[in-house]
Amino acid sequence: MAATSEQIRRVKVRPNYDHVAWKWMRYSALLLIPLVWIHVILQDVIVGVHAMDLDYVAQRWANIGWRIYDALLLGFAMAHGMNGVRQVANDFIKGDRARSIMSWALFVFWLAITVIGAAALIGGVRQDIPLN
């Protein structure tokens, strides 16, 4: 084998969309682990679904801290999840055009669900409507 030079060649590549999306998955994940785990342990294990009603949600959201907490969950978890679906779907869909359609469809879906969630988070529990 001929001797090869061991100079390290460094190339700067401009990050494309998928590069940014990949980093986003990592950074959002680090934030989501405490956010989601605390949420799940508190609501599913400690409080439990049998203690849930409109009053519970109203009381929780009376505290602006929990509203901010839920807003972070909504923003980070839904975006992380939708980008994850996009990555899985990329394995099953071939062709730039089909992938582009899938990406835009997921984006519209993400936007719709996020807007619905944000509306409730801002609007709060509506108790003016008689339930019985």
Binding site: V88, I113, I116
Partner: peptide, 27 residues
Amino acid sequence: TGLGTVLFLVIHIVDIALVYLAPKGFL
């Protein structure tokens, strides 16, 4: 596990949104 979680997440955002959009439906 990722797909399972995101499936419930979508359902969960909508069900919590019912407290504002349709409180009876939330119950």
